[in-house]
Design a protein around this nucleic acid. Structure first.
Lengths: 187, 187
DNA sequence: AGCGATGGAGAACGCTCGTTCTCAACTTGA
DNA sequence: TCAAGTTGAGAACGAGCGTTCTCCATCGCT
């Protein structure tokens, strides 16, 4: 064996690749970003990229999957740092407010991916549904801990806030949704 | 002048073109549908299509604009056939339920277009924002007639229902949002 | 030192897209 | 009837895509 690549280097490069692809896809849309731009941004040769992921579609799914893990971990960490069940549910919307206000925020990556590839890519559609179901179930668990059966409307308010903030560029929907959730949870 | 086309024929063909484009764009996504497929479905020569709309982007904007007019007219007709203000607001969600249950429903065309072209087409982005603002303002007027200051959460519930029904394919979010609106409007 | 396999850089391929062009057929006014 | 100009059908073009291939430098091993 001649000039191998260490297992550790492989892992680092794979993360760089996912970093570059995620940033580009989120900022410009998936279909608008060619594999050449991913190569340029990641610094990896095309050959290596296609050894990690056999097709662009595989790369897209991997990006969404990693983003899902990180997104829900970040949300969970924020929410579960609060003790009281009712406050926990409200903390979801505080976290959303922070997300919406981040520079470069362009809406929910999964809603956007659904709009772009939902009709044409079965694996991407499955990944989007999986993410939304996971978020729904997590949120429903937090809501149910308050003893108030309002999981569905709270979820719809969160989704409405995401899509509206994404389109308008205004983070205000997070606070508006939060206020409505306070009412639904009872005073 | 040799072989002209009547003004009336022009109008009919233009509508056929918009019909074909709207159906295809909505079903398969905008970027996934080439101008050749629009030509085939509309039966119009490419030359004529480009005389109506100089670019595909112009066609997309025209499709969204006509759909916006029809969509809001249909909603308004349904809602304003009801007299009582509170019932009017609830009628919005009945209308949404009917829409979500239509065969071929694939979510909100504007949310989808935003996901596809929001980052890359300024005219499409403007059209999406214009539609959402118009819907918001109309809905807010209906809500404000009830004397209850809950226009924003009602709008977010509607948006959340649209995006969730679009991704899941399940029309249930309309009824869930309706139930929450009943609570917000007071019993 | 030399062999052989591997990696990187990017050219190349096949395809599809949006858009434009060619050209024969046709309609109409003189 | 004839000339003129518009129309329709589709070929053609240039660009960009995802993906694969070529080629050379590089390294480990005997």
């Amino acid at each position: 064996m001649p000039a191998p690549i260490t297992e550790e280097q492989n892992r680092l490069d794979r993360e760089s690749l996912l970093d570059a692809a995620e940033t580009l896809f989120y900022a410009h849309g998936i279909q608008a970003v060619g594999m050449d731009r991913v190569r340029e941004a990641s610094g990896l040769p095309l050959k290596r990229i296609y050894r990690f992921f056999a097709t662009k579609e595989d790369l897209v799914v991997a990006v969404l999957r990693r983003r899902d893990r990180r997104w829900r971990e970040s949300l969970t960490a924020h929410v579960e740092s609060v003790a009281e069940p009712r406050e926990r549910v409200l903390a979801v919307f505080d976290w959303l407010a922070g997300w919406f206000a981040e520079p470069g925020f362009r809406g929910c990556a999964w809603i956007n991916a659904h709009g772009e590839l939902g009709p044409s890519s079965e694996p991407v559609l499955a990944e989007v549904r999986s993410h939304k179901r996971a978020f729904h179930d997590q949120l429903a668990a937090w809501v149910s801990a308050t003893g108030t059966p309002v999981a569905e409307p709270v979820f719809l308010l969160a989704e409405g806030a995401m899509v509206t903030a994404g389109i308008s560029g205004d983070p205000a929907p997070a606070a508006q949704a939060r206020a409505a959730v306070e009412v639904l949870l009872g005073h």
